[in-house]
Design a binder for these strands. Sequence first.
DNA 1: AATTACATCAACCGCAAAACG
DNA 2: GCGTTTTGCGGTTGATGTAAT
Length: 368
Amino acid sequence: MGKTPCCERLRMKKGPWTPEEDRKLLAYIKEHGSGSWRSLPAKADCVHIGLERCGKSCRLRWTNYLRPDIKRGKFDQQEEKSIIQLHALLGNRWSVIAALLPKRTDNEIKNYWNTNLKKRLTKMGIDPVTHKPKRNALGSAGHARETANLSHMAQWESARLEAEARLVRRSKLVSNSYQSHPPNSSRPAQLLHQVPVLSPPKLPCLDVIKAWRAVFSSSALPSHGDDSRANGTRNLDGFTRNSLVDNLDHLFPGLSIEMISHKDKSSACLYGATKQGVQNDWKCFENSMEFQDTEAAFSDAKDPFKLPMMEGFKNFVFDNVGAYDLSNTMSHLDNVIGSCGDDFEENRTYWDSMLNFVNASASGSPVF
DNA sequence: AATTACATCAACCGCAAAACG
DNA sequence: GCGTTTTGCGGTTGATGTAAT
């Protein structure tokens, strides 16, 4: 490598962008689209429109500042929480984190982490790299086991998150292409085949920590001794809330699911979306309910589908996803159970403490 | 009011991977 | 298949704003 930076090589302008430059770049993108920076940079195009910036600088300005779908300003509590949680799982993989935080750029998240969140965690005696209390850094045998298992969890979840991020990115690509090339335009037909068709305007949110906690908080996983698990013939009613979500998410990458129970609000919501046939048509399922006692309702492992919302979701799955191989579900479930293993309590405690300190800090702590 | 220290964030840099010719 | 160029990412810098002294 060791190439001369394009800005220097082409004697392009550097430094802060002026409103006039922004206007010119926006005008260019409006006319040509934002898909290909290859066609925009430094050669004749930028100069031609009076923008003496290299393509790299243009792309950066667009992706981090000018893009219309960027949310600017202060991060709210939920976003802070998500950043901390995702960083605990993914480390400094800002692009993946940004893909899971709608409307925020990786640069913005990275800045916010470095200037704000990292310091807060340090002040609280929590190592911002490991996300563990510093006094436990040298830890015990139990800690080693916890770390090993957490690492395993992180790898597993990380792979899934990256896949999710790829989907989001591809969906944005489709969205951009759609803007640049409306259906009746001369958009190359090739692109339509290359890029999987996803819903441009809305992808379901996936809160990974909630998913994690759902797995590790579940008292509803079927027991190993459950005979019906072996035959692979029983229907969805045999599965519990958490294993259903977990398995559907893995078996059907196109089906995104979020299911949350809010203890304090005594409510729950379930969200799912799946692609319909060969059309650009996504079908969504969304349902929420109020309960007298959510905890009791969801901890009833024996008959979770008495809940009407679950009944509705089950029908949604059968109607829109169709037949699938239950034996895969079974083997995956075995893996889930296996990975939970003996460290179940330790992991649950870890994530609970993560959430607790964020929640506690948000309400009155001098640090937050 | 002036100076200094600290915080913020847009923008740059270098690198690696992907795409191109 | 290979060299070159472009793209995307994470780390870092430095200009600017704000608070403290």
